[in-house]
Simulated scan of single mutants.
Amino acid sequence: MNRDKFAQELKTLREQHGLSQEELATLLANSHRAFEGVNQVTLSKWERNESTTSLLRRLGIANYFGQEYEFDAKEMEVITPSMRLSEIPVNQDISYHYAIDNVASYSMESIPKSLWDDILAIHNKLYGLDFLRFYQADHLNIDDIIILAYYCKGMIVGHIVYDDKTDMLLSVGSISLSIRKQVLEYLANEMMKKSLVIPVQDPAMTQFLYDLYLTPKRALFGLFLFKVDSVSLINNPFYQQQPEKNGQIFKYLRYYSQKVKKKSIEFIL
């Protein structure tokens, strides 16, 4: 998808998915705040090329349908400042493809010290915050902590640390963005957790969850705590595409554009 072919490709993708203009408009508006106010009339004008929507919405629609977006020179100038915000460890990836083939569960008593030290090191490298300090400040019981280690061919490629009593997600680590997606899908689909409390540090990710119509309940140590329906979150098309390259661009472009207008999460909450 690109700017010149947007109108035709939008119509083609909508029809391929068996959606009417009204149905697609409703799905978009209910999935992400960037599409608030979009209706059948709006979509009809876009498809007939009678009006041009923003780069953010074009990119968002490409992400919704899982399509690559080809940026022209002017669009690259627009996205470049926002992408500088994404240069944090948690968003870095590597070229190898891994698939999780085994999951091991541990308590604080049963986990091997070497594995626990590795998880703490990875967490601190990704987030720069000791989650045990965060955990103890919230007066929670360390005996309720569950650690899941994810393996590929005997090598650890990801982890989750959570509180089984309060369903607070304390740490997510992964060797790649694709593994992170697999880890979170496991969390939602295999653990059958209806809701999770998720602490979020990255302002762009906080904005992203807010744009998916989630509202943080409170803040602690600079982290925003969201209580989310894990299945609904995983099934949101924008969340599904978030780990992909264009998904990252969409997330950071949205945050940057809102921040410039002083409408980002820092100014709302």
Results as ranks from 00 to 15, higher is better:
2 N>L: 00
4 D>C: 04
4 D>R: 11
6 F>T: 10
7 A>C: 06
10 L>S: 00
11 K>T: 06
12 T>L: 11
13 L>Q: 13
13 L>A: 10
14 R>P: 01
19 L>K: 12
20 S>I: 07
20 S>W: 03
27 L>D: 02
29 A>P: 06
30 N>M: 08
31 S>W: 02
31 S>D: 06
38 V>D: 11
38 V>P: 04
45 K>S: 13
48 R>D: 07
48 R>L: 12
55 L>R: 05
63 N>I: 06
67 Q>V: 00
68 E>T: 08
74 K>S: 11
75 E>Q: 08
76 M>K: 10
77 E>D: 14
78 V>P: 03
79 I>C: 06
85 L>R: 08
86 S>V: 02
91 N>I: 02
95 S>N: 10
99 A>P: 00
101 D>M: 07
106 Y>I: 09
109 E>I: 11
111 I>G: 08
113 K>T: 15
114 S>I: 14
117 D>P: 04
122 I>F: 09
122 I>W: 13
123 H>G: 03
128 G>T: 08
128 G>F: 01
133 R>G: 11
135 Y>M: 11
141 N>P: 07
141 N>Y: 04
142 I>Q: 14
146 I>W: 04
150 Y>C: 07
151 Y>T: 12
151 Y>E: 11
154 G>E: 04
155 M>A: 13
161 V>N: 10
175 I>Q: 14
182 Q>M: 03
183 V>G: 09
191 M>T: 12
196 L>K: 02
197 V>I: 14
202 D>E: 10
203 P>E: 09
204 A>W: 01
207 Q>R: 05
208 F>Y: 13
211 D>H: 05
221 F>Q: 11
230 S>W: 04
232 S>E: 14
234 I>G: 02
236 N>H: 02
238 F>N: 04
241 Q>H: 09
242 Q>F: 09
242 Q>D: 10
244 E>W: 06
247 G>D: 02
247 G>Q: 02
249 I>T: 14
250 F>P: 03
256 Y>I: 08
260 V>E: 15
264 S>N: 14
266 E>T: 06
266 E>Y: 13
267 F>Q: 13
269 L>S: 14
